[in-house]
Design a protein around this nucleic acid. Structure first.
Lengths: 191, 191, 191, 191
DNA sequence: CCTTAATCGAGACGGTACGTCGTGTCTTTAT
DNA sequence: ATAAAGACACGACGTACCGTCTCGATTAAGG
């Protein structure tokens, strides 16, 4: 070891090691000791910062993933929805489905983890940015009203469902979802 | 021990022990040794039948869950769909979401587990019974044609999504899903 | 299996299997199940006859080893002793040292085994045949009297010691033992 | 637990536990897990230091037994030999024969164990200290020459033989062995 | 600039569960 | 009645990883 790292430099090295491990063996086989070795540090250094394995991994994922919290505003409902779904999907290209299920499984028994993981998965109450997109469409007169909550969250639900079960969602699948299962449900203005 | 058990009697005792363990400590902390103890048997007996923990648990779940593979036939599309979704949902009342996530996490990295878990979760290619229900509705003249695959699987997808994220789905939620997000998408006959 | 064996034919097949196992894996790794398989029978058949592994092995050894209980009588002390030691030694050519130690180790905690094993090893109180040989030599006038017990058992002790520690004893070593460490200790008649 | 033990302090506690176990259940039933429990440590700690049960036991024995490698020098052959045999014998008072047989059984099939066990049992090539004692006697003129190897090792062989077969050797037995079966074999100076 | 406190890197510790192996018993079927 | 076959209940094995602790080395900060 040339010099002894600390603070942010150390954390970056650790996050990099976590990504390496996730890619090579996956979440279930990710071991604290091996992450420490790969990062050129030691287990106590990890545990001091992240008391559980899931905390460490969530940290590493958040460090690298985009945060899809902003509502796009293209002036057109269809484009807005597609863009929103695309941004939700994009960051997950690198993450294995198994990692997500693994995190969810651990979150299920550690309540304080649940919120971080839900955020990570864009499981947002009240529809979040989607509701904003729809409200803007109402203002523009594209639709008559914001539909029921079930419909508001439907696109993200379907896309996430696809993501969790198969691991990927293509741009075409997103478009098809929007055109076939979402837009027809919206209340169009008469005429 | 009255007498030495074998075959089906033994398996039943083991499955019962698995359910006990699932209920008391959950899937993540379910241990083979403890299941064996509780069932009054030994680890080798378990491993002889189910090489992995997940196999054992899937077996125990299947043993007790109804198999929603048959298409209901009430003579009315809406009732058929609701009945189908209800039967998909019903058995899961007892299963913790954590168990399902745990199984999915393991299935994601063990290809041969995937199919058992998918069956368990009614993740069926081609829509399965739902397609049959729709075809009957076409014959009856309730709808003009079977909609695209994405729409066919939509009700089950949404209900399962709800199930996996919250743990329960009420009859009302099922009805709302069908009425608000499924029936409106179907091609009604003119007039 | 052509026909079902019983009685002596069955035992012979089992003993043969025991010898095979002793030769291929040794006593410590000899397993009841494997002996049963090799003999084309089953474990219960073995346990019915020999409750412990050591019993089975002692049985198999006795079945094939010569019994050095008779005192040779060549008319000459030196030849008698050498012949006696040779017969003690001979049968053990095939038996591994490890087997003998293994049997002794088990005999140490199962008192009723001890006597069988001691007999097997020619550990005989009162000198056994050696005393007979010496008494005949006194009658013939070769020596004046039977020496102290410690000297009587000395040749067998030394040879067995050599056997247990190294695994083999050559004819030359026997002769040397007798000439160098035994005959000089005997009370020769004056003149 | 006051504080976490390491190094020598830890080993001492483990050796003590081994002695306890040897005394209470004997070598054959000595279990690594139970030793660990009794020593307040864990199996991995044992296996890290002693890969096999026999290594652990040999270590514990060596830790407590005197090392009879030095040749006594009393100025008199008979006393030297008796002292040497006594020191060989002394430490073994506490060790069960079963333990020694068990160790020998394992040593017989694990070449690298053999040397440790042989040392433990004073099975020394070339006679070791006994040869030194005899050479000194030659210098003093007590005997004319060092006798053949077989005679040099005879006293230790006989005593050890007695030890292994019966578990104990009394001072009187040692004296008798020396006077009856060893000294008469030595070449006395004329006159 | 030098001391002092903090934390790093390294590695062993006490612990828990793993999956496997062998034992000795029991049940079943067939001879 | 007993052989052959095979599973059962049991218990120990040796391994893997956990999360914690101890220890010495290094580094940043404060007097």
């Amino acid at each position: 070891m040339a010099t002894r790292r600390r603070g942010r430099a150390l954390e970056s090295a650790i996050f990099a090691a976590v990504w390496d491990e996730l890619r090579s063996v996956g979440y279930a086989d990710l071991q604290m000791g091996r992450v420490a070795d790969r990062a050129g540090t030691s287990k106590p250094v990890l545990y001091r910062r992240w008391p559980r394995r899931a905390d460490l991994v969530v940290g590493a994922l958040r460090d690298r993933l985009p945060d899809a919290r902003e509502a796009p505003d293209t002036g057109n409902l269809r484009s807005d929805v597609i863009e929103l779904l695309t941004s939700v999907t994009s960051g997950y290209a690198e993450i294995e489905t198994a990692t997500l299920w693994g995190l969810l499984a651990e979150a299920a028994r550690e309540p304080d983890l649940l919120s971080s993981v839900r955020t990570l998965l864009s499981i947002v109450d009240e529809g979040g940015p989607m509701r904003v997109v729809l409200e803007r469409a109402v203002v523009r007169g594209e639709i008559k009203a914001v539909p029921p909550a079930l419909v508001v969250s439907l696109p993200v639900d379907l896309v996430r469902n696809q993501l969790l079960l198969t691991g990927t969602v293509s741009a075409q699948q997103i478009a098809e979802t929007v055109d076939t299962a979402f837009l027809p449900l919206l209340p169009r203005p008469a005429g």
